[in-house]
Structure formats: C-alpha cells, structure tokens
Write a protein that binds this DNA or RNA. Sequence first.
DNA 1: ACTATAAATGAGTGATTACTCACTTTTAGT
DNA 2: ACTAAAAGTGAGTAATCACTCATTTATAGT
Lengths: 222, 222
Amino acid sequence: MDEKNYLNQLIEAGEKEDELTPKQARILEAAIEIFAEKGYASTSTSEIAKKAGVAEGTIFRHFKTKKELLFSIVTPVITKFAVPFFATHFVNQVFNEKTPDYEQLLRKLIMNRFEFVKNNIPLLKILLQEMAFHTEIQQSYQEVFRREVFPKFDEAVKYYQENGKLIAYPSETIIRFTMTTIIGFLITRFIVMPDVNWNDEEEIDRTIHFLMYGLSTEKSES
Amino acid sequence: MDEKNYLNQLIEAGEKEDELTPKQARILEAAIEIFAEKGYASTSTSEIAKKAGVAEGTIFRHFKTKKELLFSIVTPVITKFAVPFFATHFVNQVFNEKTPDYEQLLRKLIMNRFEFVKNNIPLLKILLQEMAFHTEIQQSYQEVFRREVFPKFDEAVKYYQENGKLIAYPSETIIRFTMTTIIGFLITRFIVMPDVNWNDEEEIDRTIHFLMYGLSTEKSES
DNA sequence: ACTATAAATGAGTGATTACTCACTTTTAGT
DNA sequence: ACTAAAAGTGAGTAATCACTCATTTATAGT
C-alpha cells in the first residue's frame, strides 16, 4: 500500500513531464539553469522568459507566482532524492536476499545515489540553496525523511546491530555518520571540486571502507 | 615569518572592529542578522538601514556597494574559520609535545571548532550560502585553504601514516573524510537540527571514534 | 467549417531596488 | 572658539521587479 503510494507519486511526477506544454517545459528548463547558477532570489522572471524564448506573461499563465515556479521544480526532487536513499526496494532486498552485511548495502546505496546526483546537479544545487530560506521546502523534506527514509534506515541498522555487525551506537548516530559521509563525498565530488581528476571507483571503495573501518590501522577496542 | 603574517592578519581583523564607528558597527550587526535569515539577494539596503537605526545613505558612506558590505562581513570569517582548522598552533603542539596519535589531535580540533561554530552561527550561515554565488568568496576560501590549512594538515597526516598509525590512503582522501565528518557533524548539530536535545560530549566522542574506527565491530583487514 | 476553450502574448502597472548628492551635524586638532 | 574633515542624513532617481490583462493565436471536439 504504502509502497505503491510513493511509487505512484514518482510515476506521476515522471508523467507530469509529458503533460507539459512545450513552452512550459522550456520555462522549467530555463528556470532550473538560471536558478542553479545565480540563485532564486537574484533571478528575474524576465530573464527566465528571455532564455526560454517565451513572453513573460506565459510564465504566469502556468505558474501563479515566481515562488510556485520554484516549488514545482524543487518538490519532485525531494522525493526523488530522499526516498531511494533508503527506499523499500533496498531494504526488502536486504532482508529477502539476506544480504550479509552493512557494507554491501552501503555499496548499493552509494552507487545508486552517485548516479542520481551526477544526473541532477543543477536541481540539487537549487534544493540545497533554497532549503535554507523557504520553510515550506524544509518541512517537505523533513516529512519525506521521517516517513519514508528514516524508518527503513532505522530498521536495517538495528537488524545489523542485533547480528553484531554494527557498533552499538544509537541508530540515529549511525544514520547521521552514514549520511554525512555519503553526502559529504557527493558534494565534494560534484559541487565543491568537480574539476579535479577523480578515480570514482576507488573513492567509492575508500568511502565504504572508511565508513566501516575508520582511518586507524589499529583495531577498535569497543 | 609566515606565521607572524597571518597572525597579524587576525589581529588586524580583530582590531578593525574597534576602529568602527558606532553606526558602522550597527550596520554590520543588522546586515549579518538579516543576511543570515533571508539571504543576501533578498535583503534590501533600506531594511538594513531601518534595523540598524541609521539613514540609508549612511550605509553607502561606509560601504561603496551592497556587495562590499557582504564581503566585509564574509572575508574575515574565512580566515577565522579556516585557519585554525589546522593552524600552526596545533601542528606545532603535535610535533613538540609528540602527541602520540591522530585521535588526540582530532579531539582538540573538534572541540576548538565546535566552540567557534557555536559562537558564529549567523556568520557561517552567510558564508555557506553566498559562497555558492560569488566567485570572489570561493577564490578567497580556496586560497586560504591551499596556503594555510592544507599544507599543515597534509604534513600531520603523513607523519602519522609514517608511524603506522593511519591508513595508507592518499592524504587528500584522509583530509576529506576528516573534514566532511567534522563539518557534517557541526552542520547537523547547529544548522540542520539545532533544536533536538544533543549530548554534545558524547557525540563528540562518538564522532572521533567513528573517524578512527568506523562503524563495524569487526577488525579492518587493511 | 464552426466554435468553445486553452495557450500565448507584450505593453502596462505600481512597488521596490541600489545608489547619489546637496546638505546638516559631529568630531577633533589647534 | 575656530575650522576643516569626517560622519550622517533623507529626498530623489532611473532601473528593475513580479505580476496583470485585454487581445491575439492555436487547439480540439463536433
């Protein structure tokens, strides 16, 4: 039920792009590009119209306000990024296939999100930037995280802890370490330093290994 | 020489606050508060003037443009945050006192930066936000990092690697893991979830332990 | 082909923007 | 007390802003 529900949301969101008028699509494309580059607040609707090759009035025919244009860009990204971060798909896979350790789960998670970020850099830049100023976006993200991501993540962490594979920290702490490490890697890779020569495969391996075993060469005493 | 140089810069920056006119100080205070809350681009100079209790013209007597006002807020933060992140002070301490492991260095680093972030949240919010849109800020940060932070950090990491205490990753990778973990913790603690009940001492301990030994209960095979 | 509906237009609107400048007030050296 | 420089003022300015609306163009069902 719940599974079908968010799946439908994703499909809906995907199909919405086909329902768009060609001009509407061009408005969204132009807005995404400029928002990502200069930020929402310093982008004018006239500039968007110019880049999209439409009249300024056309923007307001499809989006009541400039803010609604922003939200219609950002809202789908939240579900698309957050949900598969630890979606049912993965968790089911873990429990059904009896994936033996957190490490393999991490690999799937990182590989999957790596590709997503790679293909959605401008959208994620906008989300990252504007979340700070719009409580609506914050709330939307929080809700999605609390409802879709956290419970599954929590369940998996506790499963591995019970099997003695994971350290006995509060699962919130483990989730925090896992997420900040992965997100930190992706932000460094694609936003802070996208131009240096990355050996992606190697860095992903190291990131997973770091998450599991840390930086020390000595055994942990815990 | 070099040490004295950036030390002087810090002292200079500190003294500059005393050189300020009372009204100039109130302008900066007001600007910091509003920039942090709504962002640079959606803050008007008239709003700053109103909050500071000065005429709008007074702002432009002291700061040629609105952008110069932003930079005079942000630039000192860069040096103040980045430099002690791994300043000579710490490194000297390590080598002179023969601090035996990376772990103790990490503790000093985290405790130090924890207090700094705690006391400068609005300034760091502004830096974090506006860095994305102003290449001048990015360049300034990069330069400070490459000149002041990285070489010292690099030196320390290699020292511990030679002593067999740290894993044989490229030191860039180790620095990246260390920084994203610490910054990720501080951002979660003070910006994303400042309102939940944090047991700071415990979380700092866990963060250090995670950095050193990871999440697994099993020994690393590397 | 007719027509109703939706899509698209762009000139126009009042509000707001960063910034200027002629002027007044305060400060500080003598 | 005098004065020159610095600090402070606020009305004014052109440009730009998000958004409206009367009008034209395109679409689709019959």
